[in-house]
């Protein structure tokens, strides 16, 4: 499986948020995207995941163009995103948040609710098992039955990751998973991501925090002003004078 982004452009009025962005991320990769604020990282995610229409360019998943699909259809195709600012279902508990994310539930149809209660109960039990595993895996056991709105910022990031996992994706797009998270939890989240990647789930990670990202990903791209200005191994990329200028404001 690969995700291919071909010449994506997106303008807001006269401002070019994305300008001919090209990227290819291979199956099961752990790929990073860095760049200063306003470089277009989140916009790129929104375009890839179908929340914002692109002005031009194509998005290819496994050889099939997906740019005509709605956001939910793209998620069902196996590519699930998270959000920079966590979007937990705040009045639902952590457990309910995760339950809600499981795909293709008979009980999500009103006819199923009233006419196939047996099947709904069976599915609920199976989903509950997966949720328990996910809660344990993400070490959210202590807060499992609390309304998710009361979680700390870091716990919400973990919950978002957990919800994405429950959707059974092949690839997860993580938008700043470490932003506003305390250092201990950052290590925790990084370990979880690496472990999941080991199980074959691909990740594209946007991050503002250079240090964290370079420790996590073997390969990354650098964005600046809507363009990808470099791509490769973290060390090589960060030594690129163009990148140093964009990222460090020309200080060398």
């Amino acid at each position: 499986m690969s995700l291919e982004v071909r010449d994506i452009g997106k303008s807001y009025g006269g401002f070019k948020a994305l300008d001919g962005v090209r990227l290819t991320v291979e199956t099961g990769a752990l790929f990073g995207i860095i760049g200063p604020n306003g470089a277009g990282k989140s916009t790129l995610f929104s375009v890839i995941s179908g929340f914002v229409p692109a002005d031009e360019g194509r998005i290819i998943l496994d050889g099939k163009a997906i740019d005509g699909l709605s956001a939910p259809a793209r998620a069902r195709a196996g590519m699930v995103r998270t959000f920079q600012v966590p979007r937990e279902f705040r009045h639902l508990t952590v457990r309910e948040n995760l339950m809600a994310a499981a795909p293709q539930q008979t009980g999500e149809n009103l006819l199923g609710v009233f006419f196939r209660p047996g099947r709904v109960n069976e599915e609920e039990a199976a989903i509950a098992d997966r949720v328990d595993q996910t809660i344990t895996f993400l070490k959210l056991t202590r807060v499992a039955d609390q309304p998710s709105g009361m979680l700390s910022g870091g716990q919400k990031k973990l919950l978002e990751l957990g919800r994405a996992l429950m959707a059974k994706p092949r690839m997860i797009l993580l938008d700043e998973p470490f932003a506003g998270v305390n250092p201990v939890l950052i290590d925790e989240i990084m370990e979880r991501i690496a472990e999941l990647n080991g199980r074959g789930i691909g990740f594209v990670v946007i991050e503002h925090d250079l240090q964290a990202l370079t420790r996590l990903v073997p390969r990354l791209a650098v964005m600046d002003r809507g363009r990808i200005i470099a791509e490769g191994e973290p060390r090589a990329v960060l030594d690129d004078p163009l990148v140093r200028e964009a990222y460090l404001g020309g200080v060398s």
Partner: peptide
């Protein structure tokens, strides 16, 4: 209820 709390997050999970 998830839709009430955050519609875009529901979309991101593959549900319309």
């Amino acid at each position: 209820e998830a839709i009430r709390d955050n519609e875009e997050a529901v979309q991101a999970l593959g549900k319309d």
